[in-house]
């Protein structure tokens, strides 16, 4: 479902569907290696640390730190024309995963880089509910 309506090649693979299914239910889930515990993303059939093929999808603490963010003013595919301008951020989750996402709840003029954030789940066009990240309030960080 994740590539529907986009002009570019579909970079999603079937094996990441638990991530999107979890997000629709308000959970942030990734593959955990059954052998060494490494949390991996993008989804893959093999652990890049220990090369084991055994894994389980499990939720993680939905908290992290904004590494950087940008604003697209140009639509690089027809499906994005209605969306520009829109932001994209990279969040470094405490579990080690680096996740592309969008930001919410920041005031204009804020520089989100380095800000502690927590996952929310919001509708994003035809994709349904997806993870977005908002500034972590005191006490929601952990």
């Amino acid at each position: 479902m994740t590539g529907e309506g986009l002009a570019g090649p579909d970079t999603t693979t079937g094996d990441d569907s638990p991530f999107w299914a979890g997000a629709r239910e308000g959970r942030l889930e990734f593959q955990h290696c059954a052998s060494c515990g490494f949390v991996r993303w993008p989804a893959a059939g093999v652990c890049p640390e220990c090369l084991s093929r055994d894994f389980a999808w499990r939720p993680v603490e939905p908290v992290g730190t904004v590494w950087s963010w940008v604003v697209y003013h140009r639509a690089y595919s027809a499906a994005l024309r209605e969306r520009v301008p829109y932001d994209v951020a990279l969040v470094e989750l405490d579990c080690g995963v680096r996740l592309l996402t969008r930001l919410t709840g920041f005031a204009g003029g804020d520089d989100p880089v380095g800000t502690r954030v927590v996952a929310r789940f919001e509708e994003l066009g035809e994709h349904g509910r997806v993870p977005v990240f908002a500034p972590a309030e005191e006490g929601t960080d952990r």
């Binding site: 570019g8 970079t11 993008p42 590494w67 940008v70 639509a75 690089y76 595919s77 592309l100």
Partner: peptide, 29 residues
């Protein structure tokens, strides 16, 4: 070049297309 660079499963969902995206991220950082 309306595609994501490298393996980035969620890139198309969030609209993170073209090398301009990662380059802009890197410059902001």
């Amino acid at each position: 070049f309306g595609h994501a660079l490298g393996r980035q499963d969620e890139a198309s969902v969030y609209g993170f297309l073209n090398v301009a995206g990662p380059a802009a991220m890197a410059f902001r950082r």
